[in-house]
Design a binder for these strands. Structure first.
Lengths: 194, 194
DNA sequence: GTCTATAAACGGATAGAC
DNA sequence: GTCTATCCGTTTATAGAC
């Protein structure tokens, strides 16, 4: 899958971009977007501000590229886990893979939080809950559960529970997020899939 | 309850401080902490930067005062609602009052988010979940429920669900947060209090 | 491809006039 | 009690040398 543009990116250029994205994730995770300056990014990467702006036209563009990388990695991992599961176990697979993935990537979590709480929300709320709502709906159908259910709220509660568990394991590494995920699955099972 | 210090605050001084806290909440809610400068605060209040710094020694101090006001108002309201409820209904009262209070104060929500996601967390995680854990524990005792339960995770899931519902009603005012709270209460009932 | 140099604006905070 | 004037550091971004 070579570059589609007229000029290919050189190896070093590609490596530089990857490095810049890495240090950006690290700095935004540690200090927040507002406190992450081009100067700091450049210093961490071992080059100068102007050097950074050669590879990305602006600080904003660099941060968005970093966020996009983090998000697509998450979506890929969770999507694969959900696809591999039975429809009846979709929500459980979603919760397990989401918590498992994020638990091991604390910096990614902080990057995603920064993007969500940013005033210009880089992440769409509906894009997230509607996917989970579909999972819940499919699981209920596969289990033969009937009755009314507000799928949007159901999805939001699941997402919120995941966020809280992941956030807690971030501030307290000794917290057992895996066990917590299993409890959340039980709650969802008894409260939303019956 | 007069001022305890040697000199009382004048009426105008007290009014100024209140006004400064109000505009700070508004600006932090709208633009985030990092993008809220003393200059903007001063401009919104109709005075100058130096004028602001006369009343509060630093930007940080002003923001912290604003946050403290928002938080104590929330704690007072929710605390009263929980105290007025039967122990068996403690979690339900907590969820209802929390969602109800925050739904009507969108700017307060964004202020609290800013404080939580700030790098120097102004809000303690344990302070929040341990109070909810006590509510869950008391409700289970009152209902005669036995069996093991990870109260910390239970509390985190409740808090996370509330956050997600409130956040959604923030981005979509037509979303019925009150109905959503009732669904969350049902889920908690079936998943954690049985 | 990365650097130096610099522009132009904005940040928080202080001193002192009124 | 509030303002004017100012300081100094930092910010993003550009122009042009190497």
């Amino acid at each position: 899958m070579p570059s589609a543009r007229g000029r290919n990116l050189t190896f070093t250029e590609e490596a530089r971009r990857g490095q810049l994205i890495d240090v950006t994730i690290e700095l935004v995770a540690e200090h927040g977007y507002g406190a992450t300056s081009l100067g700091r990014i450049a210093e961490s990467a071992g080059i100068t501000k102007a050097g950074v702006l050669y590879h990305y036209p602006s600080k904003q563009a660099l941060v968005e590229a970093a966020h996009e990388g983090v998000l697509s990695e998450l979506v890929t991992a969770v999507g694969a886990a959900v696809d591999a599961a039975e429809p009846a176990d979709g929500p459980a697979a979603y919760i397990r893979s989401m918590v498992g993935h994020l638990r091991e990537r604390p910096r990614h979590v902080r990057m995603l939080i920064e993007a969500m709480t940013s005033v210009t929300p880089l992440t769409d709320s509906k894009a997230r809950w509607s996917a989970v709502a579909d999972l819940v709906s499919a699981a209920r159908a596969a289990r033969g559960v009937d009755g009314e259910l507000d799928l949007r709220t159901a999805a939001l509660v699941i997402g919120g529970g995941i966020d809280a568990i992941v956030a807690e394991s971030l501030t307290d590494p000794s917290y057992d997020a895996t066990a917590a995920a299993e409890l959340l699955i039980t709650v969802v099972d008894q409260g939303l899939l019956t």
